[in-house]
């Protein structure tokens, strides 16, 4: 990383800027299979939220149904969690954010929960640009029901049972960009450094941030012939750029040479710096992002990084012109019109 950061002056080394230790961001013990990619992602969520310094009580954790959807129980024990019904986390999350716009929401879903049963709600969450980190733990397979293909399984990949997938995979990142999502990234459970940087950047973004994280299923989809195995992902991962994150509360110390990196200022004043690889990729260019995704689906490349970012679009809550305070706790006098109002309404109906 080319950027050095200064720790906040007051905080001891084992605490973040709010005085919490990393243990404060942990959850219950995981009940997933040993080596599951999801557990690696859980660790990176804990790390990112700790390092960024998120108030745990302000977080709402959301999920649907499936292996992935169990994971919110495994991080941020001091945050409220809501594990809903299969494929419907987007609507619950939307309701939560409508009720209390001051919350920070993170939704964890899977490829079945999002790309099959949940597709209907997923696309509308993206259209609305609900402020939420929407993280898909994508393993191409249904784990809890023992190994059926999901809609993100790559064409030609082989299931553990030997069946070859003959249907095209849904590219969730391309779909998200098409639908107006302004923070779209793809990452890998086995690349903690990149994932933590992206998660912290997402915390500084306003609106939906979409994470398509390849997360191998060690039990049902980690064999030869799978395109979502640890080995396949490690062998094929290509970085779009090297990512570093400078939070709003730290100084930027090192400047890149002109043209060497792209610096994007996020909504909260943090910066995400994308140091160019030989690909020379520009994630602020929507057309280039979509072309790149299309090309890599055809060439079976596995590109990771921040695929698309646009910090200029308003989120849904802004469009609704709601009061700043949470709607949930507005007192009666602010939400009940007066007796004179009722008299006026009644008079108009006479």
């Amino acid at each position: 990383m080319s950027t050095t950061v200064q720790p906040p002056a007051a905080a001891p080394k084992h605490m973040n800027r709010l005085g919490y230790t990393i243990a404060d961001y942990k959850g219950a013990d995981s009940t997933l299979c040993a080596g599951c990619g999801h557990d690696a992602i859980t660790s990176q969520i804990i790390k990112a939220f700790y390092e960024y310094g998120v108030e745990p009580y302000r977080v709402a954790k959301l999920s649907g149904i499936g292996c992935s959807s169990k994971t919110p129980a495994y991080f941020l024990n001091m945050s409220h969690g809501l594990n809903g019904v299969h494929g419907r986390m987007p609507s619950l999350g939307t309701g939560v954010m409508l009720a209390n716009r001051t919350l920070i929401s993170i939704g964890v879903s899977g490829d079945g929960d999002t790309a099959s049963i949940g597709m209907g709600q997923f696309v509308h969450l993206l259209r609305r640009n609900i402020p939420m980190i929407y993280l898909i733990e994508n393993n191409g397979v249904y784990g809890l029901t023992k190994g059926q293909f999901s809609a993100t399984a790559d064409y030609g990949s082989k299931a553990k049972s030997g069946v070859v997938n003959q249907l095209p995979a849904i590219d969730l990142c391309a779909m998200a960009i098409d639908l107006g999502c302004n923070f779209v990234c793809r990452s890998f459970a086995g690349d903690p450094k990149q994932l933590v940087a992206l998660l912290k950047a997402a915390l500084g973004h306003r609106g939906t941030s979409l994470f398509d994280v390849i997360s191998p299923c060690v039990t049902f989809n980690n064999h030869d012939g799978s395109t979502k195995s640890y080995k396949y992902a490690k062998d094929h991962e290509e970085l779009l750029h090297e990512i570093s994150f400078v939070p709003f509360f730290e100084q930027i110390n090192v400047e890149y040479q002109e043209g060497e990196a792209i610096d994007v200022e996020l909504h909260d004043g943090s910066h995400i710096r994308l140091r160019k690889t030989d690909k020379g990729y520009d994630p602020t260019n929507k057309g280039e992002a979509l072309d790149t995704l299309r090309n890599c689906q055809e060439s079976s490349e596995f590109l990771t990084g921040l695929i698309y970012i646009n910090e200029s679009k308003p989120d849904f809550l802004t469009l609704l012109n709601m009061v700043d305070a949470p709607l949930a706790t507005l007192p009666q006098e602010r939400v009940q019109p007066s007796a004179e109002d009722l008299t006026e309404i009644m008079a108009a109906l006479m």
Binding site: S91, T94, L98, G120, P326, T329
Partner: peptide, 21 residues
């Protein structure tokens, strides 16, 4: 909010109720 279907309509309502609205 005009939802995309009734599943989402009641999901949003329940999410909001859960969060105190």
């Amino acid at each position: 909010v005009q939802a995309e279907d009734e599943l989402a309509a009641v999901g949003m309502a329940l999410g909001a109720g859960w969060a105190g609205a």
